[in-house]
């Protein structure tokens, strides 16, 4: 089992619905977020290209945040989901410093919080809230070890990239380009 997500930049309109759905599903306090939208523009008027990306923890196979956690609070769950056990987290923020994607934040209650791929939903066979809500249906989620999963099929069909591959983290969130 290897959970992964693919996000179609050709369809994303950058509406941030994924951010709100995550906040309400996971009780993320207002002012914080586990996912966010990046809009990047290149060129000069009128020769322009724009890419929208819904970004979050990349659930890296080689996660610097898990490696550097002094208490073992940051760890891998089944399927490679990276989570933080909040009772074990001392809030030292070493993981925040180590993450190349700036995907973690310190919760007002003192522990570090981040995207969990909505583990409470996916272990029940449901989709993460962001994937489920997206009005453009630009997000795909599933098991890369299953060649017939949505995410395997779309990655086989479409050109894609990951963010900062040179960091060597082997991210599991893919962007269709």
């Amino acid at each position: 089992m290897r959970y992964a997500m693919a996000i179609d930049t050709k369809k994303c309109v950058g509406c941030s619905d994924c951010v709100v759905a995550c906040q309400t599903e996971n009780n993320v306090p207002i002012g914080f977020c586990r996912d966010w939208v990046v809009e990047s523009t290149d060129g000069s008027y009128p020769q322009l290209v724009l890419e929208n990306r819904s970004e979050r923890c990349n659930h890296c196979e080689n996660s610097p945040c898990v490696r550097c956690c002094p208490t073992g609070a940051s760890h891998y769950e089944e399927g490679g989901i990276v989570t933080v056990t909040k009772q074990d987290c001392i809030g030292c923020s070493a993981c925040i410093q180590s993450c190349p994607y700036d995907a973690r934040y310190t919760h007002p209650e003192g522990y570090v919080d981040k995207c969990t791929f909505c583990i409470q939903l996916v272990t029940k066979g449901q989709k993460p809230a962001c994937v489920d809500v997206c009005p453009t249906k630009c997000m795909y989620f599933g098991d890369l070890d299953n060649p017939n999963s949505e995410v395997s099929l779309i990655l086989a069909r479409r050109k894609h990239k990951t963010l900062i591959p040179e960091a060597g983290t082997n991210p599991q969130v893919y962007f269709l380009i």
Partner: peptide, 12 residues
């Protein structure tokens, strides 16, 4: 009108 998917305002 939504096919099970609300927009950010509806979700919010």
């Amino acid at each position: 009108n939504c096919n099970g998917r609300l927009c950010p305002r509806g979700t919010g």
